[in-house]
Computed example of a mutant assay.
Amino acid sequence: MSKVEIYTKGYCPYCRRAKALLEEKGVSFEEYKIDEQPELRDTMIARANGGHTVPQIFIDDKHIGGCDDMLALESKNELDKLLSA
């Protein structure tokens, strides 16, 4: 199974949706809550090539984008391939 990391904020509906999709698929992930650990925000932005909104999602250290990007991968049947690599 791939390593999945997601940067989130507690009140973010897109973060909740992204996490729900991963949980539906039975995928474990490392969550970084930047509202609780604001020092991680700069790391997130650097890793996401300037992406500053949440969520920012990484699969095996590859930035895939946010919730909409992950849902697009799912709709094209490409997400499972990334998650099982």
Rank of each mutant, 00 (worst) to 15 (best):
Tyr11Asn: 05
Ile64Thr: 13
Val27Lys: 02
Leu71Glu: 01
Val27Ala: 08
Asp69Arg: 08
Ala85Val: 06
Leu40Asn: 12
Arg17Ser: 07
Lys9Asp: 12
Gly51Thr: 09
Gln56Phe: 12
Gly66Glu: 10
Leu40Met: 14
Lys19Leu: 10
Tyr7His: 02
Gly51His: 01
Glu74Asp: 07
Leu82Met: 03
Arg41Val: 13
Asp80Trp: 14
Leu73Val: 00
Thr8Gly: 06
Cys67Tyr: 11
Ser2Ala: 02
Glu23Asn: 02
Lys33Phe: 07
Leu22Gln: 11
Phe29Arg: 04
Gln56Gly: 14
Gly51Asp: 05
Tyr11Arg: 06
Ile6Ser: 15
Thr8Val: 14
Lys62Leu: 08
Lys62Phe: 03
Leu82Ala: 02
His63Arg: 02
Leu79Cys: 10
Thr43Val: 11
Ile34Arg: 01
Leu73Thr: 00
Arg16Thr: 00
Gln37Val: 14
Ile34Gly: 07
Glu39Cys: 04
Asp35Gly: 08
Ala85Thr: 00
Phe58Gln: 11
Ile59Trp: 09
Lys3Phe: 01
Val54Phe: 04
Arg17Glu: 09
Ala48Lys: 08
Glu31Asp: 05
Asn77Met: 02
Asp35Phe: 07
Phe58Asp: 01
Tyr11Leu: 03
Glu78Trp: 05
Val54Lys: 08
Gly50Tyr: 14
Arg47His: 00
Cys67Ser: 01
Leu83Glu: 07
His52Asn: 15
Asn49Thr: 09
Thr43Ile: 08
Gly65Tyr: 13
Gly65Trp: 07
Pro55Tyr: 06
Gly50Leu: 13
Phe58Tyr: 09
Met44Ile: 08
Gly65His: 00
Leu73His: 13
Met44Gln: 03
Thr43Trp: 11
Phe29Glu: 07
Lys81Val: 11
Glu36Ala: 15
Ala48Glu: 03
Thr8Met: 09
Gly66Thr: 04
Lys3Gln: 00
Ile59Cys: 08
Asn77Glu: 12
Lys9Met: 03
Gln56Tyr: 01
Ile57Thr: 15
Tyr14Val: 06
Leu71Trp: 09
Glu74Cys: 08
Ile45Gln: 09
Glu39Tyr: 10
Glu39Val: 03
Cys15Ser: 00
Leu83Tyr: 00
Asp60Val: 11
Thr43Asn: 03
Thr8Tyr: 10
Leu40Cys: 14
